[in-house]
């Protein structure tokens, strides 16, 4: 369903973020992308929805070649790819309902969205999703009044309101405590199963990845160094991905997930918007 071939990304500074990525993701599969900070995980999923422009290579979603799209074509393609972010990326000063409904922006015209006059089915679906993630009572709260776990739930509802075929998840648990992290991962897993979504999850926490993913892909310095089932992931392979470390100390808790530094170049709003403009 999603096919990446020969995808390469080089930043203007000359840093190679991704080299020749070959990846195929069938429908309904939950794939975890692991690797050290700076391995290119975030860049990879941002290349898929073109928040980052890949330097070369092809990315196909079903029959659409994503790399060549621009303007309204790109907008249409982005609607079918929901994205969940590390720091939730909610708009703090909008209410929960407005945040969730923003998932429909690709479907409604400007004035409708400006006046917040969304179609009835969109509102009903948004409310159903909020019930599904357990926040129906919070519709009128402002996003910054919620806890971390609650915000991530709103982020999930927003992504799902796009009725996506593909879910791109960037470090969903990096800012959450261990218990909330597991709840969020379980929720994502269940929702993907319900809707048969193909999913790419960037994640630092190897244990969580092994528990909740169907398939694990290891990335190191912009190259795929492992691709297999979770139970195939051995200490040797972890060493190839992350480098030398004693992986076999079960009583020691997994490392605190550290935040991946995100380079400014890629978060440049102008870039994100330039690609989102109708010509």
């Amino acid at each position: 369903m999603l096919t990446l071939s020969g995808v390469t990304k080089r930043y203007p500074t000359g840093d190679r973020a991704l080299t020749d990525i070959e990846l195929t993701l069938p429908k309904g599969q939950v794939m975890a992308l692991i690797g050290p900070s700076g391995a290119g995980k975030s860049t990879l999923i941002r290349c898929v929805n073109r928040l980052v422009e890949p330097t070369s290579g092809s990315i196909r979603l079903d029959d659409t070649e994503l790399t060549r799209l621009s303007g309204s074509g790109l907008r249409k393609a982005r609607r079918s790819m929901g994205m969940i972010f590390q720091e939730y990326a909610l708009v703090d000063r909008l209410t929960v309902m407005e945040n969730v409904l923003s998932g429909r922006l690709g479907y409604v015209g400007f004035w409708r969205s400006f006046l917040r006059r969304y179609p009835e089915d969109a509102v009903a679906e948004a409310f159903r999703l909020l019930e599904r993630v357990g926040l129906p009572h919070a519709i009128d709260k402002r996003a910054d009044a919620l806890s971390g776990g609650q915000r991530q739930r709103v982020g999930i509802a927003r992504a799902l309101l796009q009725s996506p075929k593909l879910l791109l998840v960037d470090e969903p648990t990096a800012s959450l405590d261990p218990k909330t992290s597991r709840q969020i991962m379980r929720l994502i897993r269940e929702l993907c199963a319900e809707r048969e979504l193909a999913t790419i999850i960037n994640i630092h926490d190897v244990a969580l990845a092994q528990q909740f993913a169907d398939r694990i892909v290891g990335l190191r310095a912009g190259q795929i160094v492992f691709d297999g089932r979770p139970d195939e992931l051995t200490s040797d392979i972890l060493t190839t991905i992350y480098g030398e470390e004693d992986w076999d100390t079960s009583p020691e808790p997994a490392d605190e997930p550290e935040r991946e530094p995100v380079s400014y170049e890629r978060r440049d709003i102008a870039g994100a918007m330039a690609t989102g403009v109708a010509p």
Partner: peptide, 18 residues
């Protein structure tokens, strides 16, 4: 008031909070 808004949202009726 807020419960009424939730009920309305369930039916697909929702307006921005004034």
């Amino acid at each position: 008031y807020f419960e009424a808004r939730q009920q309305a949202a369930r039916q697909g009726q929702w307006r921005r909070l004034p």
